[in-house]
Design a binder for these strands. Structure first.
Length: 203
DNA sequence: GGTAAGATCAGC
DNA sequence: CTGATCTTACCT
């Protein structure tokens, strides 16, 4: 089963998730942009920008669970963002799904996102991706590899990948933990967080 | 019990 | 650059 390919560190898992097909509520889409997130300071991948950095809490508990689960959270009170949990059970690690290319169910995605949105931008950005696929907070913790799940994922082959700094994070902003498929127009434009210290500064 | 910050997005 | 909008986590 494919899920074992995600029982690895967040960086390897991120690369393996590029090209995967995400199937959710009438829409399927190919993942074209992701970001890796680690865990607490004394773990294998210390990551101050990760929700799990300060240990398990009510919100982030899914990140500490087994690989292949969906970890959703609400961002700025408005949007939902989706992660695929990686690493082994008890170890925090996840990959944020940042952008995807809608392959089927385009009219459904278009209805969810609004008529003014161009097809290439339907699932561009983590909040928009969840909106296009119909992912909500009720989906937090579901198994993305179970036949019965409303949201599923199918891993693909290794692909040609570009790496760069993560978007939006105010800590560890220089870390090249963002990965994109090369030459995909659905990838979101890079924007450094206005709250992040200047490039090269420590935080 | 109060509150500040936030892995975002769209519109000036 | 800003406002929208709300949950969590941490503080007193």
């Amino acid at each position: 089963m494919n899920v074992r390919r995600l029982s690895v560190d967040p960086l390897a898992a991120a690369r393996r998730l590029l090209g995967a097909v995400l199937v959710g509520r009438g829409v399927s889409a190919v993942v074209v942009e992701v970001e890796a997130y680690g865990g607490p300071d004394h773990g294998s991948w210390p990551d101050p920008a990760s929700h799990s950095y300060r240990g398990p809490t009510g919100r982030n508990s899914v990140m500490f669970g087994p690989a292949g689960r969906l970890y959703t959270y609400r961002s700025h009170g408005i949007h939902i963002c989706a992660n695929v949990v990686c690493a082994t059970d008890g170890v925090a690690g996840a990959v944020l799904l940042r952008a995807a290319k809608v392959e089927s169910g385009l009219p459904v995605a278009q209805r969810r996102r609004g008529d003014s949105v161009r097809p290439v931008a339907l699932a561009r950005g983590p909040g928009n991706l969840c909106s296009a696929l119909g992912i909500t907070m009720d989906d937090n913790g579901i198994d993305l590899f179970a036949r019965m799940s409303p949201i599923r994922i199918v891993l693909g082959e290794q692909q040609s990948v570009v790496e760069g700094p993560r978007v939006g994070v105010s800590k560890a902003a220089d870390r090249p933990w963002r990965f994109c498929l090369t030459g995909r127009p659905e990838v979101s434009l890079y924007r450094r967080s206005p709250r992040a210290p200047a490039p090269g500064e420590s935080d």
